[in-house]
Simulated assay, not measured.
Amino acid sequence: MGTHTPLFPDRVQLCSTKSAEDLRNLIAARISQHQQAEQERLDAEREKIRKEEEARAQKASVDAAAVAPEAKQTAVAKAQPDPAAEAARHVERNGPDSHASTFPGHPAFHGIETAATGREVVKIKLGDINARIAPLSISAEGLALLGFKPINATGAAKLYDQAQFPDMCRAMIHGLQDAANSYPLAA
């Protein structure tokens, strides 16, 4: 009973009121209950640790998967033309009265100033963007070329700031208008 003394705060009373056989059975039962409770506690702790490690491993795999698209986006970004050069071409095409902020490559065009306001970001999936602009569609790479990067990716889903949707539409319209102006109809 040395290590199990805390299990028997009533030991004096038990010794004086119980028979030797009853006392042995009571001692065995309390020790058994204590050992069972301790084993359940250890099992629960092991399970908690296992789940935490599983969550860490899952997060690491998600982070690793997110690194690959970011590397691809970096490559796409490096392949993009210089926004300043594009803005100069925009002014050449549209005249000196056209303001740079109407050009899709200009930060003001994408509402970057509003991101600093600390507003809550509502996320929209790329698939939802395509549903809104149907029958047209655009890929994540297309949005990246227009200057819109996903705010994060959940699995294969790319998530964007919903507040930028009107700017995305304007950038797509502007791109379509530039394409139409670059390739006039043959008479």
Results as ranks from 00 to 15, higher is better:
10 D>L: 08
106 H>L: 10
109 F>I: 07
8 F>H: 04
140 A>Q: 09
55 A>L: 12
93 R>T: 13
8 F>K: 02
174 H>K: 12
78 K>P: 00
23 L>Q: 06
34 H>L: 06
130 N>S: 04
173 I>F: 05
3 T>R: 15
8 F>R: 04
44 A>T: 11
182 S>R: 12
145 L>C: 12
176 L>M: 12
170 R>K: 12
184 P>N: 01
92 E>L: 13
96 P>M: 09
46 R>Q: 13
137 S>W: 02
69 P>H: 01
28 A>D: 14
100 A>I: 09
62 V>R: 03
177 Q>Y: 12
5 T>N: 11
18 K>F: 08
26 L>I: 14
141 E>W: 03
61 S>N: 10
50 R>H: 05
144 A>P: 00
119 R>W: 05
1 M>E: 14
51 K>H: 13
91 V>N: 03
66 A>V: 00
130 N>M: 04
71 A>C: 03
34 H>G: 09
145 L>D: 08
24 R>L: 11
119 R>G: 11
82 D>F: 05
93 R>E: 13
42 L>V: 14
160 Y>A: 02
157 A>E: 02
114 T>Q: 06
49 I>G: 05
105 G>I: 02
167 D>K: 08
157 A>C: 07
109 F>S: 07
101 S>G: 05
147 G>T: 04
77 A>G: 00
33 Q>S: 13
89 R>A: 15
88 A>G: 07
92 E>S: 13
28 A>Y: 12
171 A>W: 01
175 G>C: 08
117 T>H: 12
128 D>L: 03
71 A>Q: 06
21 E>F: 09
76 V>Y: 02
9 P>K: 07
127 G>H: 06
23 L>T: 05
86 E>Q: 13
11 R>S: 10
160 Y>P: 01
169 C>M: 04
91 V>F: 03
110 H>F: 00
158 K>F: 05
81 P>S: 05
95 G>F: 07
5 T>K: 15
150 P>Y: 01
74 T>K: 08
51 K>W: 06
40 E>P: 03
78 K>E: 08
